[in-house]
Design a protein around this nucleic acid. Sequence first.
DNA 1: CAGCATCCGCCACGATACTG
DNA 2: CAGTATCGTGGCGGATGCTG
Lengths: 134, 134
Amino acid sequence: MTYSSKTKQSDISLSNCGYSKVLDIISNKWTVLVIYAMENGKIRYGEMLRRVEGISKKMLTQTVRKLERDGLVQRHIIPTVPPSVEYSLTPLGETLLQPMKELRQWGRVNYTQVVEARANYDFAYTTTEEKFRL
Amino acid sequence: MTYSSKTKQSDISLSNCGYSKVLDIISNKWTVLVIYAMENGKIRYGEMLRRVEGISKKMLTQTVRKLERDGLVQRHIIPTVPPSVEYSLTPLGETLLQPMKELRQWGRVNYTQVVEARANYDFAYTTTEEKFRL
DNA sequence: CAGCATCCGCCACGATACTG
DNA sequence: CAGTATCGTGGCGGATGCTG
């Protein structure tokens, strides 16, 4: 969705690869964090705004609407004054939690190695002139 | 990487959440597809270009360089004329394959439900006037 | 064959202000 | 409290052309 889907048929295309379909859903800045905020059950709009550091009201609304459209999130409006709204994962949304947690686990375990690899790479491709400044 | 990392500390921030760290690596248009292309072992540049439908040379090079920098991919230059280059996953890169496959599996199993949910949502929020045209 | 250089359009995202 | 409306922008990604 994020990108135009004008791709022809092939063995690995954006249209028929399962990866792409998932990316179509979760590959943007805030989606996974918002889902993450709901992993323990119902949560109110304002509470999410506080828990997901750095997100703006605009992006939170936009993200949560998209997830609702995708059938991953439910929206419960509680008619009080002022109104409050609770969000939670649907059963379908819950099923996404498991694979996501494994990815998170991978990140926790391996990210330091990635950071090291980057440092090595950057050092190796640094000009000798720049190296002398260290 | 895709986005600026100017976020303060919090319980869910871009900097300390495992999800974000993984997204930092795989969340862009082509990365997962390129990794996918290497899941069965060595593969040459031109072969990837053909297998990953729709990717341009620029983006393939860019993606593969980033993965190399992250320590997930190895580059083997074979000194022939004209030169050929083989790419393959590193041991670290291989470890990412498992969680990625589960995500792909999730996509295969559940994507149709997502598509249905979207159709329902769009229909529900279509104006009655537009509905009459159906 | 396997790239790199350049130019450019587009849209995801951020900031700000207003509302029921 | 939980949103909408509007405007501005950075940089991702596409297209094209050139090299060793």
